[in-house]
Amino acid sequence: MTLKKLRKKYKMWLTLAFVFLVLMFVLMRLQVDGWVEICMGATFLCLVMVIYVMLRYGRCRVCYNLLDPYVLFHGGHCKFCGTPVEDGEEKRLIFRNMREMTEDEINGFLQDGWKIGCAVDTEKEQQELLEALSHSKETGFPQFVLVYEKNVLIGYLFLYGEEGQTWIVHNADEKTYEQEKEMLAYGRDLCRSLGSEKLAESFQKQLGEVKRMGKSHREAWEAWTAEKSGNKKEN
């Protein structure tokens, strides 16, 4: 849910709660039996929905802590991880940290990983992956994240930290324009929340390239290949 929709839903329930509350007091002064209890119940329901909306949707998209109401409705940064709170496009993807996944979900990835170019074929490779996952930290590196769209596994973000040669491994550059932007933005914000501006800058650089091109890296490659093939036919 975008912040624009969140504000609209929050204000709707808050307005209804106020209206029913005023109506309840009016009916109490007029001593109208029956309707006072109905208005009281409606007021309570609306207040419950206000709280539910804030608890369900009013969280930071990176650290998942509750956002300050002023920051949520007027802009700013999450006080826990510093992620900017701003309006954006409706989020299409779901990011699941493998550290938080069940054994069945991990086994599903081991079976379907080849579909996203992350094959885990042998039992030895499976054991190596599970061993790596056991070292995944809650507030540091490495971080292993799987990406889903409509409950279908489409991608991964493996963040190993700033040490060693391989820092970041992902398949965002194989996705569509919108998918790549969202995956890179998530990786940037996650690295920033973990205190690695170096890795966050790496994601930001890739994200900037995608936005300048106006298409994903995969789409740019396909367009270049098609153009090259067309030039060969003309010659």
Rank of each mutant, 00 (worst) to 15 (best):
6 L>D: 01
159 L>C: 06
167 W>Q: 14
77 H>R: 14
186 Y>C: 05
116 I>H: 03
86 E>S: 07
230 G>V: 07
48 V>D: 07
17 A>M: 11
66 L>D: 00
218 R>A: 14
96 R>D: 00
217 H>D: 14
208 G>M: 08
52 Y>A: 04
22 V>K: 01
12 M>V: 03
12 M>C: 00
136 S>F: 04
142 P>D: 09
46 C>I: 09
55 L>H: 08
39 C>V: 07
16 L>D: 01
98 M>H: 06
57 Y>T: 02
2 T>C: 11
144 F>Q: 01
37 E>G: 06
163 E>N: 09
233 K>N: 07
93 L>P: 06
140 G>F: 10
115 K>I: 01
123 E>R: 12
103 E>L: 06
85 V>W: 06
163 E>Y: 12
232 K>G: 00
137 K>G: 12
191 C>F: 01
144 F>I: 01
23 L>Q: 03
26 V>E: 04
150 K>F: 05
184 L>N: 02
226 A>S: 13
129 L>F: 13
224 W>N: 04
6 L>K: 01
181 K>H: 05
26 V>A: 13
85 V>D: 03
152 V>S: 10
208 G>D: 15
1 M>K: 05
136 S>P: 08
64 Y>S: 12
36 V>S: 05
220 A>S: 15
154 I>R: 04
172 A>H: 10
82 G>T: 05
186 Y>I: 00
136 S>N: 15
80 F>Q: 06
86 E>A: 14
198 K>M: 13
18 F>M: 15
97 N>T: 07
202 S>E: 03
233 K>M: 10
19 V>G: 10
61 R>N: 08
220 A>V: 08
163 E>C: 00
86 E>P: 03
43 T>F: 05
233 K>H: 08
97 N>D: 15
4 K>E: 09
67 L>R: 02
191 C>A: 13
232 K>I: 10
212 R>I: 09
165 Q>C: 05
160 Y>F: 15
167 W>M: 11
61 R>S: 08
197 E>L: 10
182 E>T: 06
17 A>C: 08
23 L>A: 15
42 A>V: 11
